[in-house]
């Protein structure tokens, strides 16, 4: 029989081997993206704050545990102090100190939340509708409207035993036939709903996700930094049936000028009449009941 010590050594080695990829992976791959909006940065820093608070508490608590495990062993001749039963003083300390730490975490969290919920001064509205399994985007002001599906290369490769190596497909499962296009530096409000079941719209670089619920309309807003045009990718984040894993979200963020050109081109192309445009109102104004869309759930 192996001695306990030998077992421990072997297993410790196994453990280290298991964690080896940790060393090789860059920190950025392990952590939340900082993102490209003011909100995403705020959320990132909040995440860092709470993460490190937890790490510090963990180090403190685990140190005491490990010290006890090492120091107070019977095999080292430790004698139990059976008189140590309770102490109101320490109980109070370890109740009050965590309360303070929690308060310190709650304040920035509440502040961030208010920021996120502040949808004043929206400059542009896009209605986003989730379907099994695609997204529809409708530009409320200009009437441009289209569907966004998983692109065909990913779709071919993702079939059961397709024989296609996913690594050979660029942006496997994260690319679509028609991305959502928005301008930088503009407060864009997404109005989210769904046609069949609940979906959820999530682009990690924007820091936010929100559920798209049939019959209801949720809001969230994005303002991408002026200097961060680019393509940002995400996925549906609420189980919505068989192909939940296959309804990606791709957002192309263009400079304001490029966006204007793009929008004009879309409007010029064969577009259905802008029937939804008049419905949109600002959050401060109360909605007028004569708006035109038909109920979406039935």
């Amino acid at each position: 029989m192996l001695s306990a010590r030998k077992i421990q050594v072997i297993l410790a080695a196994l453990f280290a081997a298991g964690l080896a990829p940790l060393a090789s992976a860059a920190w950025g791959d392990l952590n939340m993206p900082v993102g490209v909006t003011e909100l995403s940065r705020e959320i990132y820093y909040l995440h860092q704050l709470i993460l490190w608070v937890c790490v510090v508490i963990a180090i403190a608590v685990f140190s005491v545990m490990i010290y006890s495990i090492v120091k107070f062993r019977k095999s080292q001749g430790a004698v139990p102090d059976t008189k140590m039963l309770h102490s109101t003083r320490v109980e109070i300390v370890w109740t009050v100190v965590p309360v303070l730490i929690l308060v310190a975490m709650a304040i920035p969290a509440a502040r961030g939340l208010m920021n996120i919920e502040d949808s004043r001064n929206v400059e542009m509205n896009v209605k986003v509708t989730g379907y099994q399994w695609k997204w529809q985007y409708e530009y409320m002001e200009s009437g441009v409207s289209f569907f966004s599906n998983l692109d065909s290369a990913s779709n071919a490769a993702r079939q059961l035993q397709s024989g296609v190596d996913p690594n050979s497909v660029p942006n496997y499962l994260l690319s679509v036939d028609r991305p959502l296009v928005i301008p930088v530096g503009t407060k864009v409000r997404l109005l989210l709903t769904a046609q069949d079941v609940i979906h959820s719209w999530w682009v990690p670089d924007f820091g936010m996700k929100k559920d798209a619920i049939p019959g209801f309309m949720n809001e969230m807003w994005i303002r991408v930094d002026e200097d961060k045009p680019g393509v940002y990718r995400g996925q549906c984040a609420e189980l919505c049936g068989r192909d939940h894993g296959f309804m990606p979200i791709v957002v192309e963020v263009k400079s304001k000028a490029d966006f204007a050109t793009w929008l004009a081109a879309q409007q010029a192309a064969d577009q259905p009449p802008a029937e939804i445009a008049p419905a949109i109102v600002d959050a401060e104004q109360v909605a007028t009941p004569n708006s035109v869309t038909t109920p979406t759930a039935g």
Binding site: V61, V64, M65, S68, I69, F72, R73, K74, S75, A78, V79, P80, D81, M84, V90
Partner: peptide
């Protein structure tokens, strides 16, 4: 729990 181990005699 940690305090229970403290000054105990652990096996």
């Amino acid at each position: 729990w940690t305090a229970t181990m403290w000054r105990g005699s652990l096996t």
